[in-house]
Amino acid sequence: MKEADGKPKTKHIGLPIGSIVKRALFITIGAIITGYGLEAILIPNQMIDGGVTGLSMILSHITPINLSVFLVLLNLPFFFLGYKQIGKTFAISMLYGIIALSVATSLMHSVEPVVDDHLLAVVFGGLTLGIGVGLTMRNGGVLDGTETLAILIEKKLPFSVGEVIMFINVIIFACAAFVYGLENALFSMLTYYIAFRTIDIVVKGMEDMKAMYIISDHSDALADAINDRLGRGVTFLHAEGAYSGEDKRVIMAVFTRLEETKMKDIIRDIDENAFIISTDVAEVRGGRFKKRDIH
C-alpha cells in the first residue's frame, strides 16, 4: 500500500501485551508515589510542585474544588496536543498517567501528614516527587502536560524546551508567592529543584554512560589496555586529517561515569599526547555492550 506521494506506507506495529502491562504498572506506581508526595508532604506544608500540577494545587487551595479535578481538567488540552504533535501511544500513556495521579490524590486526600517541618518537607517532598515522576517518565508516561506545551512552543519560538519550562514555572511560583507567601514559594522552588535532579537520576540511572573518542599513534596498545584493564570493548573508526591528509584510527569506547577516571589513567599511561573527546550518552542498547570480568 502506498501513500499519496507514492512512498510505501509503513505498517504500525503495536506494543506487545506484556510491555503494555509493564508500562501501565510502573506508571500506576509512579502516580501513587507522586500523589502521596503531594497530599502527605507538600500540601500540608503549603508548598507546590511546578508546571500544571503546581497550578492545580494553587487553584484547589483558593477554591473548594478538589485537586484531582484540576489535574484532569488542566491537563486535558495537553493530551490532545500530545496526540497531535507526538503520537497516539504517547497521548494514551499521558492520559493514563494523569488519571492515575488524579485518582491517587483523591484517595489520599485525607492521609495524615508525615512531616510538619518545612526543611524536611522540601527534601522528602522533592525526593518523593522525583522518584514518582521519574519512574513514570522512564516507562513512557507523563504526569504533567507542561513539557508537551514546551515542545510545541519550541517549534514556534527561538527558545529551548528547558527555557520554556523555566519561564512557565517562574510565573507559577510567582503566583504561589501571593497565595502561600514568599517563604513558602521559595521552599517550593527548592522542592522542585530536588525533584528535578531526582527525576534525572531515576530516568537515566545511577550509572550515567560516557562515550570517548581517542586519536593516538598507539591505538592498538590503547585498545588492548582498555579491554584488559577496564573490561570494555572498543571500536575502531577510520578518519583522515583534513590538514595532513593522514589516515588515522579513532578509538571509540563507551563506559560508565564511574569508570571515567580509570579510562583517563589508562590513556595517560600509554600516550599522554592522545587527543580525547568525551561526551555524555543518553542510552546504550543492544550490541555487545557488556563489561567483561577483569582480574
Rank of each mutant, 00 (worst) to 15 (best):
G51V: 04
I172W: 12
A4Q: 01
V114R: 08
I27D: 10
L67A: 01
A185N: 06
L67F: 09
Y243Q: 06
V234Y: 04
K290S: 14
T63G: 03
N66I: 07
M209L: 13
L101H: 15
V122C: 05
I65L: 06
G50Q: 01
F78M: 01
A24N: 13
F275N: 11
R257L: 04
A31H: 12
V69C: 01
V52K: 01
A150F: 12
M189S: 05
R292Y: 12
A239C: 07
D224P: 00
L258Y: 01
G162H: 14
K7E: 05
I153P: 09
V115A: 00
S93H: 05
T279K: 04
F275T: 07
L129A: 01
N66L: 12
L107P: 06
P64A: 01
G245W: 07
L107Y: 10
P113C: 09
I199E: 14
G134Y: 14
A91D: 07
L59F: 08
R292F: 05
F80T: 00
T28E: 11
I277T: 06
A239M: 10
I92T: 05
L76W: 01
L182A: 15
L25Y: 04
D49R: 04
I251T: 08
I277G: 06
L127V: 00
I131S: 08
E3K: 08
S68H: 12
F236H: 15
V179W: 00
I131N: 03
K84Q: 01
G87A: 09
D217M: 10
D293G: 06
I62P: 05
I62F: 00
A282I: 03
D144G: 09
N66H: 05
V114E: 12
A100D: 07
N273A: 15
Q85R: 11
G233Y: 14
L129G: 00
I62G: 01
G14K: 11
F167A: 13
G141S: 11
I86K: 09
L95I: 03
P77I: 03
E39Q: 14
M252F: 14
R285Q: 13
I151K: 15
A177P: 05
K22T: 04
S19T: 10
L55V: 02
Y243K: 08
G286C: 02
G130A: 02
I276Y: 04
G82N: 03
I131R: 03
G37D: 02
E240V: 15
S102D: 11
G205V: 12
Q85K: 15
F79L: 03
N139H: 14
G145V: 00
G14N: 11
D217N: 13
T105N: 13
G145F: 00
M57A: 12
D228S: 09
N184P: 10
A223S: 15
L81R: 03
M57W: 08
G37R: 00
G286S: 09
R292M: 12
V52I: 04
V170K: 11
A185G: 03
L143W: 02
L15D: 03
D280S: 14
D265N: 13
G37C: 07
K264P: 03
T136R: 06
K2A: 09
I20Q: 13
K155C: 08
T148L: 01
E3Y: 15
H295F: 08
L107T: 11
I277N: 12
S219V: 06
G50T: 04
L157Q: 11
D247C: 05
G35D: 05
M252C: 04
D280N: 08
I98V: 13
L119R: 13
Q46A: 12
G87Q: 10
H295S: 02
N139S: 08
T10S: 09
I27H: 12
